[in-house]
Computed example of a mutant assay.
Amino acid sequence: MSINLSKGQRIDLTKTNPGLTKAIVGLGWDTNRYDGGQDFDLDASAFLTDADGKVINDIDFVFYNNVKHPSGGVEHTGDNRTGEGDGDDEQIKINFSKVPSHVHRIAIAVTIHDANVRNQNFGQVSNAFVRVVNEDTNQEVLRYDLGEDFSVETAVVICELYRHGADWKFNAIGSGFSGGLAALCKNFGLQV
């Protein structure tokens, strides 16, 4: 049975779900009715950080141009450029047993591609969610619906998965950023 979380809630992932080693982080959204004449292209990404919340190597940033971490621990399944249809719009697969030991947190974010050029922001996005699915059983473990808390932001850190001893936990963050992907990268210590 899936658990619905609210912003700020934390939950055990691997401790309360014994045998969970492979997870699919599914992200979905809809765009509000709006006549801007431009497609809405949202992009999921994963920042694999150290204990201080910083990305040590560029390869620890997984997104549409770097879809698989060399360890095999984190993989982006592909860029959905329209967000059309029901269900997950983009997915990131995580194999906890392969995540390198220097990685303490995996922050999952969504950005709007060319947001400034297209005059787009998360105020025009609705029904955004993240869910974690056990890849082996295809059972949804948890879900976090973001709500409509954003207006001018062009990037959102949706959640993070983090180490707690030998286990992994999930934190529902929902924190917005202006400045898109570049601002997010700087936040995690990457040079843009």
Rank of each mutant, 00 (worst) to 15 (best):
F129Y: 08
W168V: 10
D89S: 14
N57D: 15
E135I: 07
G180A: 09
V67I: 13
V99Y: 08
I11K: 05
D149W: 08
G174H: 02
L142T: 00
T21V: 15
E140N: 13
F47R: 06
D52P: 03
N171Y: 14
K22S: 12
N17S: 09
E135D: 15
K68R: 13
E84V: 02
F63T: 08
A115K: 00
D35C: 13
G19T: 06
F122Q: 02
N66Y: 04
N17A: 01
N80M: 03
H76P: 09
D86C: 02
G189W: 00
Q91V: 03
D39A: 15
V74H: 07
L190A: 07
V117M: 07
I59K: 06
F40G: 03
V130C: 06
E84A: 07
K7D: 02
Q120K: 13
T49A: 10
L146A: 12
V55Q: 12
G179E: 01
H102K: 14
P100H: 06
V132A: 09
G174V: 01
V25T: 12
G36Q: 04
D149C: 11
E84R: 15
D39P: 15
W29F: 05
V192C: 12
A23V: 06
L146M: 14
L48V: 04
E90D: 11
E75D: 08
A109D: 03
S6K: 14
